[in-house]
Design a protein around this nucleic acid. Structure first.
Ligand SMILES: [Zn+2]
Ligand SMILES: [Zn+2]
Ligand SMILES: [Zn+2]
Ligand SMILES: [Zn+2]
Lengths: 140, 140
DNA sequence: TGTAAACTCTGTAGTAACTATAGAGTCAAG
DNA sequence: CTTGACTCTATAGTTACTACAGAGTTTACA
């Protein structure tokens, strides 16, 4: 099959497939006389694997690592576990960050009061460093 | 003060300050005879504002919008509220996504079993599409 | 058989918000 | 007057793609 059909069947875009090839995530396929890429169905599994990994937000470099592990099946699988564990930590800390962010935003949202104009809005006031009105404002 | 001192005092890197200037988030300062940027302390507040907004993960374009609102103080502050609300929704959906991800990763992590080698590791197996051994594998 | 549509090719640029150089110029101290 | 610290602009790199431009290939149909 040519790249267009592969794209439809795999759910990856044509450009993404070519990109994965360039990045070494899938191997370069044969070509037709006219230089078109020609795939067999095996690559569908590889793309599916990659998609599963991407859905877990593993980076392409991590996926590459996993692929290389698959190609040397006798390696101890500790490396796999470590990668997942590390990734779990990253995800957990991102969740924590976002939850703090969410709390801060909620707080901030309450600061508007019922201001009508921007200069009275408590939100912007809150974002400024400290609205300490300088006692002898010497501007310029 | 020159850009180096501003960087130290603001906690933004020199490149970031120049980048913010290029993007129109802070205005271009005066220059010395030798073409060095020369700042007064007002810019410290602007950078602090930007840092606060970035800590809430507002995009530079959103921050630019807020800055322009500050510069027209009579505008109704609805726009501010809407931005925060929209942003809250984005953050909430990111948190949900990550929590699902986290669950999936936890699940996956359990699949290792006590495999010793990669080819027996349940994690990689799980990531593959479906290990249905084809009954009459006609390859090529 | 001719030709137009649909497909594919490579290479390049764009995305967000920076970071990190290279190579040149400026300034302060000894 | 020279060294070192600082600053300048411009450019490239980061991540995982997406979106072209311009050229070549294949298929379908009249
Ligand atoms: Zn990871
Ligand atoms: Zn308000
Ligand atoms: Zn937002
Ligand atoms: Zn395992």
């Amino acid at each position: 099959m040519k790249i267009g059909e592969l794209a439809k069947r795999s759910g990856c875009s044509i450009q993404t497939i070519r990109y994965y090839e360039k990045e070494g995530l899938i191997s370069a396929p044969e070509r037709t006389e006219g230089n078109f890429r020609l795939y067999n169905s095996v690559v569908l599994e590889k793309l599916s694997f990659i998609k599963n990994c991407r859905a877990l937000d593993l980076t392409l470099s991590e996926i590459k690592h996993l692929v290389s592990l698959q190609n040397s099946p006798e390696t101890p699988c500790e490396a796999v576990n470590e990668m997942i564990d590390t990734h779990l930590l990253v995800v957990e800390s991102r969740i924590e960050d976002l939850q703090k962010l969410h709390g801060d935003l909620k707080q901030l949202r309450l600061k508007c009061g019922n201001a009508r104009s921007v200069d009275q809005c408590g939100i912007l006031g809150e974002l400024l460093p400290k609205p300490e009105r300088s006692p002898s404002g010497t501007r310029k």
